[in-house]
């Protein structure tokens, strides 16, 4: 996927990666390593937490855990690739877009996910995707990491 991202962006100069907490953050970090191997360029990497931007914020967990958003680069002018592990309803991505735009006006935002599991509730589609799988709403998908990379594991019925 790293090569495709660089190719589509026409080089790594303007590229930046932003992982969506929590699943997208390690994937963004790994992508940045791959891009460095390919292009010998260290692209800036950030993280967004979408808890404050949820469309169900008022019914959120009574004891919510919120991670910090860290965008350690100037958003303005960058081609930003939002990175998440699993794309499902699209609501998380909607929230992440709003969060990101509060940091400035990027030239472009694209979406990269490891798994697209269908079930969209908003008109949002990925630009880069590794695996498309159509699973039922009660199934659960976990992305696990090991030395060889990331793997999607499907739990039919939702329990591991």
């Amino acid at each position: 996927m790293a090569g495709e991202i660089v190719e589509r962006a026409g080089g790594a100069e303007k590229l930046a990666l932003v992982g969506i907490r929590r699943g997208g953050v390690p994937i963004a970090a790994r992508l940045a390593e791959h891009i460095q191997e390919l292009e010998s360029v260290r692209v800036p990497v950030g993280a967004v937490d979408i808890a404050l931007y949820r469309d169900d914020a008022s019914t959120a967990l009574p004891k919510p855990q919120i991670g910090r958003s860290e965008i350690p680069f100037e958003v303005e002018g960058h081609c930003i690739v939002l990175v998440d592990d699993v794309l499902y309803t699209g609501r998380t991505v909607r929230a992440a877009l709003d969060a990101l735009l509060d940091y400035g006006r990027p030239q472009k935002i694209e979406l990269a996910v490891l798994v697209d599991r269908g079930g969209r509730e908003l008109p949002i589609q990925p630009d880069f995707v590794v695996k498309v799988t159509d699973v039922g709403p009660t199934d659960r998908i976990d992305v696990v990491a090991d030395a060889s990379g990331f793997h999607a594991v499907v739990y039919p019925g939702g329990s591991p």
């Binding site: 931007y53 919120i66 958003s69 940091y103």
Partner: peptide
Amino acid sequence: DLAEVFFEVSKRRVRKVPTLRGK
């Protein structure tokens, strides 16, 4: 710990989050 998150919000370009919209 949560206040640390909100502390960061006040340092952004847009110092506002939509969390309590309608409250």
